[in-house]
Write a protein that binds this DNA or RNA. Structure first.
Lengths: 134, 134
DNA sequence: CTAAACCTTACCATTATGGCAAGGTCAAAC
DNA sequence: GTTTGACCTTGCCATAATGGTAAGGTTTAG
């Protein structure tokens, strides 16, 4: 029952783009896939699972670099869940950092926008504030 | 009182890097600055203010593209604050979108990490979940 | 047999920033 | 007056992840 899919179908199955699948292969995230005589890439169900794994991890914002580690852990029966959790925690820290940064921008800019009349006159607190050193 | 600064001092004054100041000039965000006979760029206080303006806007996360518009508005005595506020609001929407996206990741990944023992055993809900289609 | 829909590779673009290298300039110290 | 160190110049390369396009081969359906 070895159903083999071409890259387009693998893309549909996994939710990745064909373009990205090739890219992942070329950048070493995926092993080179087998080819037909005419050079078409072929994917079996195990590889489709791997592509899905990658997509899920991308959806959670993991970098390709981290995903390489996650894939390795996934495939290692000897793994320690400690290591996986550490990776996740690191990523959570990054996410929290980015959120904080964005929230700070949000806070400052909201205050500025609130104090800008937004009418036909040139007076504008936003520009006034950008002008100042700080 | 025309104090002219070389690019390194302009960088220190503005908080931007010299590299980026050159880049902003080359990408059309800034007009070409005057040079000494030997080719060094020189900045007067008005230009320093412009650099500060750019840095402040960058700190608020505005793209260089948006900053080009903001600079133009800043320098236009005929501007309508409505336009500035619109730009700010658009950017705030983007920020809010990014925050929402990150918070979603944060929520999902936190739940996964919480259900991962993080010990020496290979069992791990995080990997288990990444494995699933969805 | 032909046309559509696929596949291949290779190159370019994005965004904002940094790094490096090879070389010119300027000021201070000797 | 020369050397030295700190500056400046340009230009090219790199990042991260993704998309686009172009030129060309393949497969499949009509």
């Amino acid at each position: 029952m070895a159903t083999l899919l071409t890259i387009g179908d693998a893309a549909k199955e996994s939710g990745l783009s064909a373009k990205m699948i090739r890219h992942y292969e070329q950048s070493g995230l995926l092993r080179k896939s087998p080819r037909t005589d005419s050079g078409y890439r072929l994917y079996n169900s195990e590889q489709i699972n791997q592509l899905r794994f990658i997509r899920q991890a991308r959806n959670l914002g993991f970098s390709l670099h981290d995903i390489q580690s996650l894939l390795a852990l996934w495939q290692d029966p000897q793994r320690e869940s400690r290591v996986v959790k550490q990776l996740a925690q690191q990523h959570l820290d990054e996410i929290a950092g980015k959120i904080a940064e964005l929230q700070h921008m949000q806070q400052v800019l909201t205050a500025l926008a609130d104090s800008c009349r937004g009418d036909g006159s040139p007076h504008c607190h936003i520009l006034q504030q950008l002008e100042k050193p700080g």
